[in-house]
Structure formats: C-alpha cells, structure tokens
Design a protein around this nucleic acid. Structure first.
Length: 170
DNA sequence: TGTCCGACTAAAT
DNA sequence: ATTTAGTCGGACA
C-alpha cells in the first residue's frame, strides 16, 4: 500500500492523506501537514500522479470530475449504497439527509450515520449533504473546534463555498 | 436478541 | 426557541 499527501487550500497546515494500492483508493484522511514528515510524496507512479492531479484540479479549477476509483467495499452494504448515492450528487449542489433518505427508502439519521463513516472525504462528496435546517456535520464533528485541532466544519464550509464559485464561472 | 446512540426532521409546545 | 416523538443502521453485550 502506498500513501501520498496533497495540500489543502483551506488552511496552511492541512493536507489530505490518500492511501491506495492496485489502482484503487483505500482510504483518505485529513491530517496536519507537520504531523508526519514521512508522508512526503515519494511515490511517482502513474496512479499517484493521477490522484494528485485530480485533487489539485478540483481544488483549483471548475468542472473537474474524479475518475479515480475508491474501494467502497470496505463499508457495509448500506454504507456502500449511500456512498454511491453521494457520488451522484453534482458538483455545486447539495442534498439534505432527509431527501437522500427518501430516495434510498431509509431514515435521515441512518443516512447521517453512513456519511459519518465515509472513508473517502472530498472524492465521495459527503460535504454536499446538509441538514434540512442548517449545515449538518462533517468528519464526525458538528461544531467548530478549538485552536490546534482540525476544524472540520470549516472545511465543509470551504468546500461548499468553493463549489459555488465553480457554478458562477459556468 | 435487546439496548443505545447518532452528521435527522416534522410537529407540537 | 425548545422539546418531543418517530426513524433505522450499526456497535456492543
């Protein structure tokens, strides 16, 4: 298994750590850049370059779509179903937990649970799922964090704002 | 099994 | 603005 790190535009010290093997992404997590010096990009395989390229495109430009595959099978059957549904939400749009629940014939809470378990943030766009009355959570968190900790809600806000920028350019 | 807890929500206070 | 009741998947005993 290999691992690469892609810097996030959200904050100076944040990056996305992507684990992969066999042309498939197995896991993505948020990380402080400084926390692991060993996570420097040292892998120059074609696939690694593709991942980096697609993520950077997404962060910098408009209509970028991801073609790299994620190993959804790491989740339960239900989680896979939800994650698949997330992949079908277009860039710049959002869905509420409730409407997704209706679509999948389950409950809003259950959808939230599956989102919380998302192993592939950004690529599987759980940030496009919001609550009927507000923001919902992100990466398991629901409120703003203290200094020093990763502020996941800030990241969710940033991603959504970024995708709106994309819409405006169209 | 049974119990409990969520990134929820609509309805009733 | 808050509270309540309904919801269902997953973790754990």
């Amino acid at each position: 298994m290999s691992n690469i790190c892609v810097l996030l535009p959200v904050a100076q010290d944040l990056c996305l750590s992507v684990s992969f093997s066999d042309l498939t992404i197995s896991r993505i997590r948020y990380q402080h850049v400084c926390s692991t010096k060993s996570d420097v990009i040292e892998n120059d395989s074609i696939f690694a370059k593709k991942i980096i390229n697609e993520l950077e495109s997404y962060f910098n430009r408009s209509d970028s779509q991801f073609s790299v595959l994620c190993d959804l099978s790491a989740g339960t059957e239900f989680q896979q179903k939800v994650w698949q549904a997330l992949l079908e939400i277009p860039v710049g749009e959002t869905r509420s937990y409730g409407t997704l629940a209706k679509q999948l014939k389950t409950s809003a809470r259950a959808v939230g649970n599956a989102c919380r378990q998302n192993l592939f943030p950004v690529i599987v766009p759980c940030h496009r799922v919001v609550s009927a009355s507000g923001m919902g959570g992100y990466a398991g968190d629901t409120s703003v964090k203290q200094q020093g900790e990763i502020d996941y809600m800030q990241i969710k806000h940033w991603l959504l704002a970024h995708e709106k920028t994309i819409d405006r350019k169209k």
